[in-house]
Amino acid sequence: MNASVTARRLPIISLQDVRFSYEGGIEALKGVSLSVARGENVAVVGGNGSGKTTLAKHLNGLLKPSSGRVLVGGEDSSKTSVAMLARTVGYVFQNPDYQLFCTSVEEEVRFGPKNMGFGRDDESALAERALKLMDISHLREQSPVSLSLGDRRKIAIASVLATSPIVLILDEPTTGLDSVESAQLMATLDVLRSEGMTVVLITHDMRLVAQHMDRVVVMSEGSVALDAGVEEAFSDPDRLRRCKLLAPPITVLAQRLQAQGVLPKGAATPLQLVELVARVRGERQ
């Protein structure tokens, strides 16, 4: 392994036995240990109320652990302000309407870098790049409120990207989008990933996980029930069901074909299934 690859794998976020209770005494995290390396793509999945969002809010200091430690870029989140942590970790909320308030898309995207005190030139460059990445440059003059949910979500992501974070957290970014909008959004995320962005995706959509993510953290009742690569995570349907999850249809299909002896064991993601089928065909010919 060469030096640059090793550097990429240093943890940018690490949680050490993090416990968290909301006021009223509900313990939402019961000793979570987790580390996210630079450039990794992690899906956080789990049923409603399993602690996904509580976990995510610890990653940028919005919530501070009741006990245990959260290190973001080496800094203890309990001792650092959210504004400081926001330079490392960008957090896109589930509902874009909770962050859009400016009269034009461009202003909205510039808001973050302005807060962080980037100079005017940097601010423009960052905003420009974010608008382009999310493919919304043509909307810059428009008012965010009047645009579609898909566009508003792109603006919300652009407005966080413009702060040039190292890690991007997305809380259910595809909820309420139609298939085309959802596919577009995930394609944009793929571009970001290929540029080295660390992505933490909170989602219910297992198809997205199978297609776009490398690693799956399954939350169940405030604990990490499973932390594994996509293939391994989907390999045990019963374990998934216990965590209130279902494997994506493509994986279920592969597993059924394997049970019938049509395919050898091993496929989980669409890409792997394609490879597997191609291999089997190759063997037969």
Binding site: A83, A86, R87, S159
Partner: peptide
């Protein structure tokens, strides 16, 4: 609360 959190996440103090 969510809105305040969202804006703090964008560096607002």
């Amino acid at each position: 609360e969510s809105i305040i959190d969202a804006q703090r996440s964008r560096g607002m103090e």
